[in-house]
Design a protein around this nucleic acid. Structure first.
Length: 168
DNA sequence: TAAGGGTTGACAC
DNA sequence: GTGTCAACCCTTA
């Protein structure tokens, strides 16, 4: 299998984007480009060849450039391939996608949106979120105002919230 | 099948 | 205010 990939550097590190025929398959965060090698190796071992192709990511690069400049960006125009997630995870990710730029949501209210009482499961699904920033799990916090957790590190969560002018 | 998880709410101190 | 615990329910090993 062949997938396309590219990376986008920003102040705090680097975003690694992977695309298949259906759309974006993954957006992950790495602190620096040196850490990309082990990721590429893993794909090689799984018989997946990753081709660097910056042109195929023109739209994504443009959106992220604006986003990191602090402009309000709507990522809903991106085609995201949720097929790797479970039914429950897809529900949570879609609900998270609907959180507008600059707004916060709690794990509880997100659970309500999908008619669910398992707040922990919502956190679990967000932890598995393969689309960093495009599915804005950084906008989900605890009801008491604590940040909760973040797969890519709380430092990055704070940075992204500051970028969107959200005061904590 | 059991354990663990990015949580919450209730209760006791 | 802080700590503890049960309950929610999905995912993973």
């Amino acid at each position: 299998m062949t997938l396309l990939h590219t990376f986008i550097t920003f102040e705090k590190g680097c975003l690694f984007l992977i695309k298949n025929k259906k759309g974006l398959q993954k957006i992950t965060y790495v602190k620096n480009q040196n850490l990309l090698e082990p990721i590429l190796d893993q794909y090689k071992k799984s018989n997946i060849s990753l081709l660097p192709d910056a042109k195929a990511f023109k739209q994504e690069k443009e959106l992220f450039r604006h986003y990191f400049q602090g402009d309000p960006v709507d990522f809903s125009s991106l085609r995201l391939d949720f097929s790797e997630g479970t039914l429950f995870q897809k529900k949570v990710w879609r609900a998270t996608q609907e959180i507008p730029y600059g707004r916060l949501e709690t794990y509880k209210s997100l659970a309500h949106k999908i008619n669910h009482k398992g707040y922990r499961s919502v956190g679990g699904a967000l932890g598995k979120n393969p689309f960093l920033i495009a599915v804005p799990c950084h906008r989900v916090i605890r009801t008491n105002g604590d940040l909760g957790g973040f797969g890519a590190g709380l430092g990055l969560k704070k940075y992204l919230l500051r970028l969107e002018s959200i005061s904590l």
